[in-house]
Amino acid sequence: MFGYQTTAWAKLFARTNFLLAVIGGVCLIGLVVIIAVGVIMRYALGTPILGINEIVQLTALAVVMTSLPYATQHRVHVSVDVFDTFLGRLGRKIGDIFSRLISGYVLFLLARRAWLKCLDALEWGDATNMLNLPIWPLYAILSVGSALCVAVFAADIVLILTNKDSE
């Protein structure tokens, strides 16, 4: 898909994104289980788990950030297509490369900033309120997820430039 099966390095890279998304899938099902357990403990057993919403929130973060590179690789992001014919083949190519360069740059800044924040959160011991769960691993996931997205954009550009991208 989108040229990722045409080159050995791209295949391997797609595999990495897939495996990371599998972790996201496990977290997704985990989210269902956590919510169900929370409701059962509170309603049926009368012993709510204090701070369970913190676990839910942190799991959701893991779901999103681990699946973002996989989703980006599969081009799920919605874009405007009304000017496609007007742009022409070359115009579309230029647009696609330009979009990825600039999006990639912003996500790169995000990845770098999230990494610094991860170290900062580790140093200062940032933690959730009720359960005192450490927050730094989440910034690490945020950083890795956006960094891999930058890599997806870079791979896309290489595939487009070498005409291996099936538009």
């Binding site: 200062w124 011991g125 940032d126 933690a127 959730t128 309120n129 005192n132």
Partner: peptide, 10 residues
């Protein structure tokens, strides 16, 4: 503006 309780660990 915030409440100390929102970042209790700090």
């Amino acid at each position: 503006i915030s409440l100390a309780g929102y970042t209790a660990s700090q």
